[in-house]
């Protein structure tokens, strides 16, 4: 039991977020999400647009403060020590979020330095990233001039430069072409062996089926169900993830509690 607890890299307990919208008034974007994600595990958050996936990931990565509930990253409370959480985190989204006027190398140097890498250690880490993600041919060009796939590779390199124990990916394949998308899936898969905990959101069912050790179905700000694909099958009596998803959503709409 102790081992299991210590192996948990991401834990959310009753995580909720409320926004004030001038048009709609008070909006409950996330209504109490619970989840555990272990080291070396890939956990997928599956849900339609507006389900609360991005808000949940943003709370876990300290971009947004939870309205209520608690979240721990590698044992650190996101509300109590957000800075330490950010040090242990790699975050990636489909939009890459690269600074367009910096080169790939400058981007890595900037992030590496802020993560406490300096001198030879920093240069060695950058060199490793250049090799690992094959940035040599374009890594010294400004990010604004790179193709989508190249940007994504620089972005991945940036997210893992400091070798974080937790990776949070927000719809990482959105907007990518087939090759770039395939590279991203391979990258996520490779992190399992490195012992990294990967939490990623998607609305692409095939990605979730292929990659995830466990899947959480998010709908209308709630986690309807969570578990391995087999557990979800047992829970719903359905075979395919698409059917499982539909079944859980229908139950939720009908007011039935999910597992």
């Amino acid at each position: 039991m102790t081992d299991l607890t210590s192996a948990i890299a991401i834990r959310a307990e009753g995580l909720a977020k409320t926004f004030h919208d001038p048009q709609r008034g008070v909006v409950e974007a996330v209504k109490g999400v619970d989840l555990d994600c272990r080291k070396g595990e890939i956990f997928g958050l599956l849900g339609p647009n507006g389900a609360g996936k991005t808000t949940t990931l943003r709370m876990l990565s300290t971009i947004l403060a939870p309205t209520s509930g608690r979240a721990l990253i590698d044992g650190i409370d996101v509300a109590e020590d957000p800075l330490e959480v950010r040090r242990r985190l790699g975050f990636l989204s489909g939009s890459t979020g690269l600074y367009p006027r910096l080169t790939g190398r400058e981007t890595l140097r900037y992030f590496g330095r802020l993560h406490g890498l300096e001198g030879d250690r920093l240069e060695a880490a950058i060199a490793r990233a250049f090799d690992a993600f094959d940035l040599h041919s374009f890594g010294d060009g400004r990010c604004e001039a790179l193709s989508t796939g190249q940007k994504q590779r620089v972005s991945i390199a940036r997210a893992v430069l400091h070798d974080p124990p937790v990776l949070i990916l927000d719809e990482p394949t959105t907007g990518l072409d087939i090759m770039a998308s395939s590279d991203m899936i391979q990258f996520i898969d490779s992190r399992r062996e490195a012992g990294t905990c990967v939490l990623f959101s998607t609305h692409i069912l095939s990605e979730a089926e292929r990659l995830c050790d466990r899947i959480g179905i998010v709908y209308d700000g709630r986690m309807l169900a969570g578990g391995s694909l087999d557990e979800l099958r047992a829970m719903t009596g359905k075979e395919w993830l698409e059917e499982i998803f539909r079944e859980l959503v229908q139950r939720a709409d009908a007011g039935e509690g999910a597992a």
């Binding site: 990565s61 989204s93 939009s95 600074y99 802020l114 406490g116």
Partner: peptide, 13 residues
Amino acid sequence: RQTAETTLLLPIP
């Protein structure tokens, strides 16, 4: 430029 999120994730106060 959609870099606000990246900036907010920097490991600095």
